[in-house]
């Protein structure tokens, strides 16, 4: 039967953003800036890795931005923002002490159910370009308790060395050793680049993967998913061992406005993190 309409259960603060202060800004590249933000209310975001917030500057607009810090960082959280439109260009002009407005967290990230399934596994993170940002929350979280995983492999591909996100953190990850490995590749290396060059799929054969015990998590540009997933399936990885996080332009974040729909799925509700087996037949995924 149809759900009973209960008009008493309305949320008057659904679209009301709360004030937050910029506490740290760092430039990564010409296009990307790192922001640490603190909610003025002192409330903790209490997010799962992979979730997003709706960020706004009053008078300019609102857009979905993924949270790139691991959960439980008190009332502060981090984002990395690429200047692509009026809002993000405006955000790039802000400095420490400036106010922005936040709603969320929204969406379905790596919740406890998924995280429980990861322990004891070989975690294979595959990130392309700015796709490292939404993944960073989960990566930093699992690195904190790396012992409980069989192995953690991070494959990261960028167009140029200059486009690498969180370069100093990448260096740190590289020096961890043990069961943690980081492989990087760039499309167009410069003279200082010592790593691999080419496309991200070139890195996959360099990791020893036991398809039975591996969980892959992929975030990158649309074109990347297709090829990476194809390679993983060729390695006999089951679809249900692959997670992806997808980008859409959510206008509301609460499953109403329709902009993020992927066939019948509201990405802001059921995603942005999906188990690939759930969406493999979806025609509007990439």
């Amino acid at each position: 039967m149809s759900p009973q309409l209960n008009i008493n259960e309305k949320d008057e603060k659904l679209y009301l953003p709360e004030i937050a202060k910029v506490t740290k800004v760092k430039s990564f590249t010409d296009q990307e800036k790192f922001f640490e933000v603190e909610l003025a209310s002192g409330r903790s975001l209490n997010h799962d890795p992979g979730q997003f917030v709706q960020v706004s500057v009053l008078g300019i607009g609102e857009a979905p931005i993924s949270i790139s810090s691991p959960p439980e960082k008190g009332s502060r959280f981090e984002m990395c923002i690429r200047a692509v439109g009026p809002l993000t260009r405006k955000l790039h002009t802000l400095g420490v002490g400036d106010n922005i407005f936040i709603r969320g967290p929204f969406g379905h990230g790596f919740d406890k159910d998924i995280l429980d399934k990861l322990s004891g596994k070989h975690l294979l993170f595959i990130a392309g370009g700015i796709g490292y940002v939404p993944l960073r929350s989960l990566i930093n979280m699992v690195l904190e308790e790396k012992e409980i995983y069989e192995k953690i492999s991070i494959l990261y591909g960028c167009k140029t060395p200059q486009e690498r996100m969180f370069p100093s953190e990448l260096d740190e990850i590289n020096s961890i050793g043990g069961n943690v490995e980081l492989l990087e590749i760039v499309d167009r290396p410069d003279n200082n680049w010592k790593g691999y060059s080419g496309v991200i799929t070139n890195l996959i054969p360099r990791v020893s993967i036991n398809p039975e015990n591996c969980i892959a998590v992929i975030v990158g540009p649309p074109i990347m998913y297709k090829f990476v997933i194809m390679d993983l399936l060729d390695l006999k990885m089951p679809k249900k061992s692959i997670y992806i996080s997808l980008e859409r332009r959510m206008k509301c974040g609460i499953g109403k406005c329709g902009h993020c729909q992927m066939e019948g799925i509201y990405v802001c509700q059921e995603g942005p993190v999906f188990n690939y087996s759930y969406v493999a037949n979806n025609k509007e995924i990439f």
Partner: peptide, 18 residues
């Protein structure tokens, strides 16, 4: 009604219905 009430009750719509 159902669309605006489900999961996150949209007060702008629902208060008008109410």
């Amino acid at each position: 009604d159902e669309a605006f009430a489900e999961s996150n009750g949209d007060a702008n719509y629902l208060s008008k219905i109410e």
